[in-house]
Simulated assay, not measured.
Amino acid sequence: MSSNAALQCVRRLFERPKAGHAGTLDPFATGLLPICLGEATKFAGIPLAAHKTYEAVVTLGLATSTGDSTGAALFSGSVDGYIDRLPETLEGFRGEFDQVPPMFSALKHKGQPLYKYARAGAEVERAPRRVHIFQLDILSASKQDVTLLVRCSKGTYIRTLAHDIGVRLGCGGHLAALRRTRIGTLDVHDAVTLDSLASMNLSQRIKHVHPADLVLAELPWLGLDPLSASAVLQGRPVEGPSQGVSGMVRLYDDAGRFLGLAVRDAQGRVVPKRMCSRPLLGSRQII
């Protein structure tokens, strides 16, 4: 199921509110797909920049045209002794490095996603992108499959990582399965499946909806007095409190209700960026 298909299912189950998802999953992947409803859609883009965590199954001994199990075979090699060489190979992928995005991706070239060129048999030159892998651990390994825990920066392609690991080992490799377990502070253990939602009535489903500011939990926050809170909701900058935070911040009123997203500038002013239409229940109220 595509990310958009999952989004439309959720919209239908919640009687079609405005909705958006915070980070596309490949159709063959599973795991965490944050869905933002109503006012929360204003902040759906923020988790896209957060670090992601995946469990990836890499099948060694076969490289494919797509970098995953859906593609045609390109190269096969012996996997004998790969387990002994794997830890040293993975060490070369930890930290920052340049990664070339795969042709089978949604990145656009001249207005068209790359996968459309790939399906037509065309190759497009892609500029490498700087990515950062913070954690790359072996969870399990068998004769041909290795399961990895990957925590990485935005824009990291796990199918490319799987392919490149196979290249370094000399045997070829592709991504056989992928599960996203975490985006920033959002964890798959706190999620609910589509099947579970479908089995509930509307009031039961609503209990699984989290406050809108949860997707911003990694950002610092500022509390505002009533006059300042009213001003920022109208889009007017205000003088910030004495709290020493700067940059992008979450805003709350004196009751702990969520107001929106702002930037605190070098002069200490709080400049509204994306504001709620009214104060909302905030996650700080239910801690």
Score class of each variant (00 low, 15 high):
H210P: 04
H208M: 01
L194Y: 03
S196E: 15
A198I: 01
V124E: 05
L194D: 03
E125G: 12
H208D: 08
S153H: 06
I138V: 13
I165L: 07
A177R: 13
V146N: 01
D164N: 08
R182W: 15
C152A: 07
I138C: 03
R159P: 06
D187C: 07
A127H: 09
H210C: 10
T193W: 05
T147M: 12
G166S: 06
I158E: 06
L149M: 11
R182F: 13
L169R: 01
H210R: 15
L148D: 03
C152I: 08
R179S: 06
L202N: 11
V146A: 00
V192R: 09
L194R: 06
R129W: 00
R126C: 07
D145I: 12
D187M: 12
D137Q: 07
L139M: 10
I206H: 13
R180I: 02
S153K: 05
C171R: 05
V150P: 03
A191M: 00
Q135S: 14
I138R: 09
C171I: 01
S203L: 15
A198V: 01
P211G: 13
V131E: 00
P128I: 03
G121T: 08
I158F: 04
L175Y: 10
D195K: 15
F134G: 11
A162H: 08
Y157K: 02
Q135I: 10
R129M: 02
G121S: 11
R159K: 10
Q204N: 12
C152W: 14
L197G: 04
K207C: 12
I138Y: 04
Q204L: 08
D187W: 09
Q204V: 08
R130C: 07
A141W: 04
L186I: 08
A141G: 11
R130N: 08
S153I: 03
C152F: 07
A141V: 13
S199C: 00
E123Q: 13
G173P: 05
A177M: 15
I206G: 12
G170K: 03
Q144V: 12
L169T: 05
A120I: 00
Q135D: 14
N201K: 15
Q204D: 13
Y157L: 09
T160I: 04
G173D: 05
C171P: 01
G166I: 00
C152G: 05
E123I: 15
L149R: 13
L161C: 09
I206Q: 14
A191C: 00
T185V: 10
A141D: 09
I183N: 10
G184W: 12
L136H: 06
K143P: 12
H189T: 13
I183R: 07
T185F: 03
I158L: 07
S203Q: 12
D195Y: 02
H132N: 15
R129I: 07
A191P: 05
I183S: 10
P128H: 02
G121R: 15
G166W: 05
S142K: 08
A127Q: 14
G172M: 01
A212T: 06
L186H: 00
T181D: 11
T193I: 03
A198K: 06
D187G: 13
E123G: 07
